[in-house]
Design a protein around this nucleic acid. Structure first.
Length: 793
DNA sequence: ATAGGGTTAG
């Protein structure tokens, strides 16, 4: 029976014989709008047809489908004299999450005869997963345990899902462990939730456990586990899943095929991915998107565009995921024009309004170092997603625009946009580059305040930040507290020791790492070599280099070669360094020569310096630092005319030297000093402090290192030979602005010069202060007249 | 109650 209007309804309804409730039911399903349904209900009640339980239940369903407000649903429920559990459960499932839980907790008062069953708790748990706070869900969990439903797989699934929605992985696993006989859905819920929380290793472990215990898996299981294998680039495991799918006859399930295409793509097995798509009779949009993305991320942007054209021809409109996959985010280099024209297409088709699409473009522009374009896309987004904030912040951090990264993070704070793990990881990276310990600690506090789960990324970023901001101890404390470390965590800690000249500690940790069966990467060896180089451990460094290629099969890159040259050269083995360079492949770039030139500077080797710099001027004619280094080699040998010639050469090429500056933080305020700076408000005090210090230093035997007094003095400033370097000013300022006995931390943008290094040693003894200097390449801890670098930097 | 593709991190 159909009805078209309220008046029609009236005529229909009045014609009904009493007790014809089924007609009312039919009417309810024919009702197209909420208003109509309300009218039917009103009519039914007015004409004495109080709906019975079954009718009420169906009405409730229909009302909920039509978007009836929760108050209506609750009123209908309370109009029933003796509701049964089924009606309650339907109501629970129909109510919006915030209204569902209060209903359940008031149940003992309102309907004492109703004893919740597993459905009730499952529905309530899934409602609590959608709430902004986890507190009601935790209370519900407690009740589930008290009422003895913790072993029920249905309830367990909903609770597991609840905890995973709040990133409480361990709590979810606890719920799972409380169910003795998990069913397929419960296994799937746990695996899927772990994947969504980026706990890929854990998800794979659970999957293996599931298969080995003989639990039944289904298509969902395989579809859920494939992204984890893909993310971890576990090709063999992915292929095992594929085999499992073939054996169980699930391999042709469309979700699984798509997952396989994506998995093979992410493991760089692009031909397998292509084959799988070709096997599908009528591939759908999602499967095509998977391969388009696979092509792009493997640098096959041409194939990606071809498939995109096919998609346009056969399936018509792409969706936002097509665009995201098409954008060559992973390898935008060489595809800059294409990336920009894809952007044009997205704008034309309105797909750029989608937040993942804009985020992807933001990322591409960041990778192309076009930060203005990136920011434009970011600013144009009407609703900024978490990922878009993160993309912009990490883009700034990776392009060295650390202050922009930090100020954007501040902006988020001001707008009360809550950061997630990725946000703080990127921001910490900016703090680390900047060496800004105070800022880094501030971010650390925010992490605690926001109660962000300390995953491997966050903890590793903290290690990196503390190490690069001068607190190796704090870095080590965090490192030791980590339950699940990965290679990157080990690398960060090893590099941290290297930066502070603690070569032995670095090697010790490296051995521990090997004992823990963590496979080292190229970065590991770079960190080890760096640590050896800065710790004067030549033989250990040689051995590590040997082991890298022979035992671990890692091909050395230009940075490894440069580090080896640095290791040998720094230790005075210049001939060996040159001989080593001859074994290096032709295209290893300027790094090796740069390292050699640096070593010549330290050991005053003019001849070799000339040879190295000729190479360097050829390879990188625009890089001023090589001119500075060469000029300094001559100065160190008191060949001032030659030194001047070199600087003149740089000047005639219109190259400008980076001015040296030093930063010091005093009570959350940053002070920056340049050479000979008198702009500071406390300038007079600073200089008189410096004079007083110099007097005591001379008394103690300090003599200015005139050789390198010319280190970064410009031509026209020659007469100011005694000009004060920025680090001395910063230290003097630190001394007058802090408590006696407290440590002083300063950051210099260039390498610390010999004279300042010597002077700082004296100052540390005279004032009995620990002075920690971060220069362009490493840390120096000055204490009681000695430096941690052992004069080896 | 779980379900395929796409964006952000050390």
């Amino acid at each position: 029976m159909l009805w078209r209007s309220p008046s029609h309804l009236s005529s229909v309804a009045t014609s009904l014989r009493p007790r014809q409730r089924s007609c009312y039911l039919d009417l309810t399903f024919a009702a197209a709008t909420l208003r109509h349904l309300d009218q039917i209900l009103a009519h039914a009640i007015l004409s004495g047809h109080h709906p019975d339980l079954v009718t009420t239940t169906k009405l409730l369903h229909r009302l909920a489908d039509l978007g009836s407000p929760p108050s209506h649903l609750l009123r209908l429920f309370s109009s029933v004299p003796r509701p049964d559990l089924f009606l309650l459960n339907v109501l629970l499932r129909s109510l919006p999450p915030p209204s569902a839980l209060p209903l359940l907790s008031s149940l003992p008062r309102t309907h004492a005869h109703l004893r919740p069953d597993s459905f009730t708790y499952a529905f309530a748990a899934s409602a609590s997963a959608a709430l902004p706070s986890p507190t009601p869900g935790r209370a519900l969990h407690a009740r589930v345990i008290i009422d003895g439903f913790a072993a029920d797989p249905f309830v367990g699934s909903a609770l597991t899902d609840f905890y995973l929605n709040f990133s409480q992985v361990s709590a979810a696993e606890k719920v799972f462990d409380g169910v003795p006989d998990p069913d397929t859905v419960l296994w799937n819920t746990l695996i899927s939730g772990l994947v969504q929380n980026c706990a890929f290793l854990r998800s794979l472990r659970v999957f293996k456990q599931m298969v080995t215990t003989g639990a039944r898996f289904d298509s969902t299981t395989l579809a859920v586990v494939l992204p984890a294998a893909a993310e971890l680039q576990e090709l063999i495991l992915g292929m095992m899943v594929h085999c499992l799918g073939v054996k169980s006859g699930l391999a042709f399930h469309s979700h699984i095929v798509t997952g396989l295409i994506s998995m093979y793509s992410k493991c760089s097995e692009i031909s397998a991915a292509k084959f799988l798509l070709e096997q599908i009779d009528e591939p759908d949009l999602i499967a095509c998107n998977a391969l388009i993305s696979g092509y792009s991320s493997n640098g096959l942007v041409g194939s990606s565009v071809d498939l995109f054209r096919e998609l346009l021809a056969f399936l018509g409109r792409p969706n936002s995921s097509t665009m995201v996959g098409l954008i060559p985010v992973f390898s935008p280099f060489g595809h800059e024009c294409l990336a920009r024209s894809i952007h044009g297409f997205a704008v034309k088709s309105g797909l750029d309004q989608n937040s993942p699409v804009s985020t992807a473009f933001t990322t591409v522009y960041c990778r192309l170092n076009d930060m203005e374009a990136a920011r434009k896309v970011f600013d144009a987004m009407p609703e900024k997603s978490m990922a878009s904030w993160n993309a912009m912040i990490s883009g700034y951090a990776q392009n060295g625009l650390t202050d922009m990264a930090i100020s954007l993070f501040r902006e988020m704070q001001d707008l009360h946009v809550r950061p997630n793990q990725i946000t703080v990881t990127s921001t910490l990276s900016a703090c680390a580059q900047l060496g800004a310990l105070t800022l880094g600690k501030w971010v650390h506090r925010i992490i605690s305040q926001e109660d962000l789960e300390l995953n491997v990324y966050v903890l590793t970023a903290l290690i990196d930040m503390y190490a690069k901001c001068g607190s190796v101890m704090e870095a080590r404390r965090i490192f030791d507290g980590m339950v699940e470390k990965n290679v990157v965590s080990w690398n960060a800690m090893i590099l941290g020791y290297g930066l502070h000249g603690q070569g032995r500690e670095a090697l010790k940790l490296f051995k521990e790492m090997l004992n823990a069966c963590i496979a080292p990467t190229g970065v590991t060896f770079l960190s080890v070599l760096y640590a050896c180089s800065h710790g004067g451990l030549v033989e250990e460094g040689r051995a590590a280099f040997q082991s890298m290629t022979c035992d671990h099969g890692i091909k050395p890159g230009p940075e490894h070669y440069a580090c080896m040259v640095d290791l040998l050269g720094r230790a005075g083995q210049l001939k060996e360094a040159l001989a080593f360079i001859e074994t290096v492949p032709e295209n290893a770039g300027p790094g090796v020569w740069g390292a050699l030139l640096g070593a010549c500077m330290k050991h005053k080797e003019t001849g070799l310096a000339q040879m190295a710099s000729e190479k360097l001027f050829e390879l990188e004619p625009q890089n001023i630092s090589y001119y500075v280094l060469l000029s300094n080699v001559y100065s160190a040998n008191r060949d001032y005319p030659e030194a001047a010639m070199v600087r003149q050469g740089a000047k005639s090429r219109k190259l400008v030297k980076t001015p040296g500056c030093t930063l010091i933080e005093i009570r959350d305020e940053v002070h920056i000093f340049t050479s000979g700076d008198r702009s500071h408000p406390q300038s007079v005090l600073i200089y008189s402090m410096l004079d007083k210090l110099t007097g005591k230093m001379v008394e103690a035997g300090y003599r200015a290192e005139t050789d390198v007094a010319l280190y970064d003095v410009e031509e026209e400033e020659k007469e100011h030979m005694v000009k004060v370097h920025s680090e001395k000013l910063a230290i003097a300022f630190g001394l007058i602005s802090t408590e006696p006995g407290s440590e002083i931390r300063i950051i210099k943008n260039l390498r610390v010069c010999l004279d300042c290094h010597t002077a700082t040693k004296f100052i540390s003894r005279i004032t009995q202060r620990l002075i920690i200097v971060r220069d362009a390449t490493r840390f120096h801890h000055f204490k009681d007249g000695a430096c941690s670098c052992g004069d080896f930097w």
